Computed example of a mutant assay.
Amino acid sequence: MSIASVTSSTGVNGATTSSKAGQGWGAMGAEDFVKLLTTQLQNQDPTEPVDNTQMLAQLAQFSSLSNLNDMKDSLGTITGQSETLSAIATKLDTLNSTVAQLLASQPTSTSTNA
Results as ranks from 00 to 15, higher is better:
residue 70 D to L: 14
residue 87 A to R: 12
residue 70 D to I: 12
residue 81 Q to T: 11
residue 94 T to Y: 05
residue 14 G to P: 01
residue 78 I to N: 09
residue 58 Q to K: 05
residue 109 S to N: 11
residue 35 K to V: 13
residue 29 G to M: 02
residue 87 A to V: 06
residue 91 K to H: 04
residue 101 Q to Y: 09
residue 109 S to K: 15
residue 76 G to S: 13
residue 13 N to V: 07
residue 34 V to W: 12
residue 34 V to T: 12
residue 93 D to K: 06
residue 39 T to Y: 02
residue 36 L to Y: 02
residue 83 E to T: 14
residue 53 T to D: 02
residue 81 Q to M: 13
residue 31 E to K: 03
residue 109 S to I: 14
residue 18 S to V: 11
residue 35 K to L: 14
residue 83 E to Q: 15
residue 16 T to Q: 12
residue 34 V to L: 14
residue 93 D to N: 07
residue 92 L to W: 04
residue 64 S to A: 15
residue 27 A to G: 05
residue 61 Q to M: 13
residue 101 Q to V: 07
residue 85 L to C: 07
residue 80 G to D: 06
residue 37 L to R: 00
residue 77 T to W: 08
residue 20 K to H: 07
residue 27 A to F: 11
residue 57 A to H: 03
residue 12 V to S: 08
residue 97 S to H: 09
residue 91 K to C: 03
residue 23 Q to S: 10
residue 83 E to P: 01
residue 45 D to N: 15
residue 91 K to Y: 03
residue 16 T to I: 14
residue 106 Q to A: 10
residue 20 K to A: 06
residue 103 L to D: 11
residue 23 Q to A: 09
residue 48 E to K: 12
residue 62 F to G: 01
residue 39 T to Q: 00
residue 26 G to M: 05
residue 21 A to D: 07
residue 14 G to D: 08
residue 72 K to H: 09
residue 83 E to H: 11
residue 97 S to M: 08
residue 82 S to A: 13
residue 23 Q to R: 06
residue 30 A to Q: 09
residue 99 V to F: 03
residue 96 N to S: 11
residue 104 A to N: 07
residue 82 S to W: 14
residue 98 T to I: 11
residue 100 A to C: 07
residue 52 N to M: 05
residue 31 E to F: 07
residue 28 M to W: 03
residue 22 G to R: 00
residue 24 G to R: 00
residue 54 Q to N: 11
residue 110 T to S: 08
residue 53 T to V: 10
residue 92 L to Y: 06
residue 32 D to T: 03
residue 56 L to T: 04
residue 37 L to G: 02
residue 31 E to M: 07
residue 32 D to R: 01
residue 62 F to C: 02
residue 50 V to I: 15
residue 39 T to S: 00
residue 20 K to V: 10
residue 14 G to H: 05
residue 103 L to E: 13
residue 55 M to V: 04
residue 15 A to G: 10
residue 77 T to P: 02
residue 101 Q to A: 15
residue 32 D to K: 01
residue 91 K to V: 09
residue 20 K to C: 04
residue 86 S to P: 00
residue 21 A to P: 01
residue 107 P to N: 08
residue 26 G to F: 04
residue 102 L to P: 01
residue 76 G to D: 08
residue 103 L to Y: 08
residue 30 A to E: 13
residue 18 S to A: 09
residue 12 V to H: 10
residue 91 K to D: 05
residue 95 L to C: 07
residue 71 M to Q: 15
residue 45 D to R: 05
residue 56 L to M: 09
residue 68 L to K: 15
residue 73 D to E: 14
residue 32 D to I: 02
residue 35 K to M: 13
residue 39 T to F: 00
residue 91 K to P: 01
residue 97 S to Q: 15
residue 63 S to T: 14
residue 82 S to D: 12
residue 70 D to A: 15
residue 72 K to Y: 09
residue 87 A to E: 08
residue 74 S to K: 14
residue 23 Q to L: 15
residue 77 T to K: 13
residue 95 L to F: 05
residue 15 A to T: 06
residue 68 L to T: 11
residue 26 G to S: 11
residue 59 L to F: 08
residue 76 G to T: 10
residue 44 Q to G: 02
residue 53 T to A: 06
residue 61 Q to R: 14
residue 79 T to C: 10
residue 22 G to A: 03
residue 69 N to S: 12
residue 57 A to V: 01
residue 93 D to Q: 11
residue 80 G to N: 10
residue 32 D to Q: 02
residue 45 D to A: 07
residue 22 G to C: 03
residue 100 A to K: 12
residue 29 G to W: 01
residue 78 I to V: 14
residue 78 I to A: 13
residue 84 T to N: 12
residue 65 L to P: 00
residue 103 L to P: 00
residue 98 T to G: 02
